[in-house]
Design a protein around this nucleic acid. Structure first.
Lengths: 228, 228, 228, 228
DNA sequence: TATGAATGAGCATTCATTCAT
DNA sequence: AATGAATGAATGCTCATTCAT
């Protein structure tokens, strides 16, 4: 729920364009969104010119405004389009029968893999979120899925006596999620190359320890090491 | 160490200007840097126009180029100017006699306080770092001080058998540092208000647990709770 | 008779569209003309976009060109549509038996009332006439009805020795008609509020005196005052 | 004091540019204003492109915005520049010793001559005033000088028993002034060619009669005819 | 006829950067 | 060093007009 400031006068509700009414319109809009993604990933949000997008889409310059009122709006459409694509495969939540560590490890690995796959978009989203508060909110909402699942998981473990009951589950979930997501950013956007297994193992280990989760005997061997 | 890409043609060696030779020159340059900080914090890096800066500084537009070759360059000067201001008071490193938990808590608290004090600048740095790879490096270097101190500390604790010897100290230091810095960003830039004490305690608790650091008996009472 | 210049390249023969052949066509055309009037009166000629008109008419953008070749052409159609509406009820011309002053007063009052009723259109016509010479002619033709009737009236009075024989009847009619029409513009378009009775009386008084028309005994009491 | 409407959202206070601080700046600004006048008179307000103005002035396109924020603003500057030029030589007001008719005749003639001299500008002002309410006000203010002088004159004559005391002097002055100014527009802008002497005589005759001003014996022979 | 999407010329506007004084 | 005016490339955006369906 954070609210960013540093905006001032950039109100601009960006009067929404009507959605296309014909099949051709749908196709043209889709071409534009797809072209926008290409151009944004290639040139970054700021350097992307609308002319580049329409050229890439093979439409006239004016056609852009049939569907979008601004660069921000088409960027939002790009994010919408790739929403599913970016959702790290929803690993099932922890249930009583599961090995909590294995579940956490699987979640972290899935997150990192998804991040790696969409690194260009993640870089882009970071860029735009740092510039435009509207997209800071989008980023926040997007992270919430990950964070809230983790928060529920922590509470569940706490209830079963499997996690330190003294930490604020919500805050811990946020902090640990940031640890993972920022590490992913460092690795796949900034290029601080690290092995996926090493990352998964270390992050999982830190996470598990941080919450005081006991490791199960015969745990997933990919999570090496254990506290005696 | 990370190298960012997404640059292409933006080479721009940014031909450095000579430092001012006269006292008047020194004063004018200082006025410009100070004005730049004001304008950047108020309008953000992108919306700040050089004309705004010179107006704020009370100089003519042309005078800007006597001292700086570009907006980036004066932004670098701003960062240089506030370098000390932003350094969270260097808490001394862990030595044998110290309570490790207390030291970590002090470090986290100092970091958060510094972040809160310089929130406007941190937002700015995040903005520019997301846009311009040169400043992504600056951010990285800046974080390194914090991260490396933490890495040394971890190694030191591992050597004394006070921290889990199986985690990669460097990677753990990075991950945990990101956890703290990103939580600070969330709190003080995005406005997800949290109490400083709660933050310090929770982050310290997670940190300490993550590394398997045993809490000293009679520990700092501000670090509430303990693993039995 | 006047010919305006300031045109040059704006020839544009405005290839007239064929009138609609089907009943549906007639209805669509009528809807467009009606919508155009609404939009023109609301936004002015210049700010009215063809898209606004078609939207208001509930037709597709392309349908406009089935009936009109340009904004000018549909404006002409609007003027055509409201022609009768704008004609100030034709007061009968002065005949021997009438009281000339009463007739003039009735004419002025009718003109003012009509102007007040169609103020939005008159403003519009002034706007377009000032911009487009074709419509300056339309305005001129429209005024001619009023002016020529007045000219005939003056000549008639002169012949009967009831008006100063030395003035050029045509010129006087034009000048006095402008006096009335411009006063109407001032009042109903520019909003220089004046009472209709006061206006009618004063304008009639000035008109009558200007031509040296003797007032009949027992004249219409609404025309107060008299030259002894 | 009439207030026009038909504007809606066109607020735009047109943030004023600072006046030039150097001699060169003064010269450039003057070149722009002069060029604007040329282009406006040649192409009309609407068809004039800013590029035409800067080209005519021999400056870069961007220089326009150093001095003006919009086409409206430079048009206001043009009007300002020609203010004196357009003021019909201030004929002295009627004093007791003067022949009222001669004074009125002189005023009308001066007005017509000034109008003829500045016909291109008057056409322009009519155009813009019909489009932009701000300039409708300018036109109104400009006319007021003429109208108010006439109102004072009428009152003066009424006091001396030389003009019909029953007419509202203000309204009569406005109506008669409109008669003259609109006739001038007809003649010099719309091209309804008329001889200056004929116009002056007829308008003066109508004016004088309208107010019931007695003609002096041995009056100015240019005012032919008299009521016996 | 009607539709609504596609077109693209046209123009205003910004602002970093240069330069004469 | 300082000044502030001049420059002009770069682009977003509008909207009348056309056209395939």
């Amino acid at each position: 729920m954070p609210r960013t400031s540093n905006d001032a006068d950039e109100a601009e509700p960006a009067e929404l364009r009507e959605p296309p009414r014909t099949a051709r319109g749908v196709r043209t809009r889709a071409r534009l969104v797809s072209a926008a993604r290409t151009v944004f990933e290639r040139d970054g949000f700021l350097d992307a010119r609308l002319a580049d997008i329409t050229t890439e889409a093979g439409t006239a310059a004016g056609s852009f405004y049939t569907y979008f009122a601004s660069k921000e709006e088409i960027f939002a459409a790009v994010l919408e389009e790739v929403k599913e694509e970016m959702l790290h495969p929803q690993v099932r939540e922890v249930t009583s029968g599961d090995d909590p560590v294995a579940v956490i490890a699987a979640g972290n690995r899935a997150y990192l893999e998804s991040y790696a796959r969409n690194a260009a978009l993640m870089r882009l989203l970071e860029q735009v979120a740092a510039i435009d508060d509207r997209f800071a909110d989008v980023r926040w909402q997007r992270g919430r899925a990950f964070t809230e699942r983790n928060a529920r998981s922590i509470r569940h473990l706490q209830e079963r006596g499997l996690a330190d009951p003294d930490v604020d589950a919500g805050l811990a979930a946020t902090a640990l999620s940031m640890m993972v997501s920022r590490t992913a950013y460092n690795t796949y956007v900034l290029g601080d190359d690290r092995d996926l297994d090493t990352l998964t193992d270390t992050l999982t280990r830190l996470w598990v320890n941080a919450l005081g989760i006991p490791e199960r005997v015969n745990a997933d061997p990919s999570v090496k090491g254990s506290r005696p």
